[in-house]
Design a protein around this nucleic acid. Structure first.
Lengths: 189, 189
DNA sequence: ATTATCTATAGATCTATAGATAATGC
DNA sequence: ATTATCTATAGATCTATAGATAATGC
């Protein structure tokens, strides 16, 4: 229909946003293209006008999420205490809203099983976050902190959030979040 | 065919073992019953003689894995240093063999999206491991360590292993494992 | 005239069930 | 006689493609 270029871009964006939410909420394998397209108010047939394959969508949704996360972290580390950032990450709200939450906590174990191209996209778009975190930790601790050390801190946050999400008893789940905050602060010192 | 009772149990066991490996290797949603049954040298039709549903299989495979993990940890904590246990967990071998590895690192984020009955089975069969770990940490540190604190340590281990698995560059992945070991030891002190 | 979207469909897979077949304990 | 296993199939879903339809820029 030769729409304005903005129309095409906006549609593509809507698909990406629906996918980003649904993947984080239900996992990649559990979400079909029909559900994503319905969420974007379209039918399945249109999908392939915008993406080469489901895997291409996964890759692009992932790198957008990681880029957004990086920007948010830069903002947060600029002003706030690490404890505030950590408490926001390991909060009951974040635990209960996976669809708008951290892509690593939701998807890391699934990404590990995806093709190398997807894992490479993940690694390269996660690196800036790790580097920013490492630099921040270095200046705080006074000694050199590597990207890998920052990854361990992120691993603690994501892994603890996963355990809290898997724990059905609310009090126990809250306690896990609290313990994760204490552990993260200890690691950051 | 009225086989001996052992025959029935052995078949059930074979299904559980195939499922335990395939779920950890590819994720629960990504593995169909046909693949599991083929791995156990059976056809799909037989599945429902042994289990009520795929979800029932997931639940039982999960609790068996957690029970086995608990026994292995008890053994390990009895003799060895924590550092040895942590190094084995965050080893390149464990990273590269998800099918025989830690069910939490492979499945925690997926379990979090399963029905409450599955999450309850997870929590109750993971608790002994956490309690053993907490008791061990308490005696080592000299102060009281809660089950939730042990969960944070487990979260660090599982989360870091996931990040190492998602990182395609081998050297970078190895570095993440090393950083995880350092962080875990710091937390345990 | 161009092209994003639609409907329809291919072909594979998914979980689950029905009914036939065959192997062994009583 | 009992029952674990088999083949066959239902009905839903999955990713991906083909061809018709319709909306807008030139």
């Amino acid at each position: 229909m030769r729409y304005a270029p903005e129309h095409n871009d906006a549609t593509r964006e809507r698909i990406l946003e629906a996918a980003s939410r649904l993947f984080r909420e239900h996992g990649i394998a559990a979400v079909g293209l029909a559900k994503i397209m319905a969420e974007a108010d379209l039918t399945v047939g249109t999908f392939y006008t915008h993406f080469k394959s489901k895997e291409a969508l996964v890759r692009e949704a992932l790198l957008r999420l990681l880029d957004a996360r990086h920007e948010a972290l830069e903002q947060a580390l600029h002003g706030a205490d690490l404890e505030v950032v950590v408490r926001a990450y390991l909060s009951p709200e974040h635990r209960d809203m996976a669809g708008t939450g951290c892509p690593i906590a939701s998807l890391a174990s699934e990404i590990a099983r995806h093709p190398r191209a997807t894992r490479s996209a993940f690694a390269s778009h996660n690196a800036p976050t790790l580097d920013a975190l490492a630099a921040w930790l270095s200046s705080r601790r006074g000694n050199e902190v590597s990207r890998a050390d920052a990854a361990a801190l992120l691993g603690l946050l994501a892994g603890t959030l996963q355990l809290a999400r898997a724990t059905p008893d609310r009090a126990e789940s809250d306690a896990i979040l609290e313990a994760g905050v204490r552990a993260a602060i200890r690691l950051a010192k």
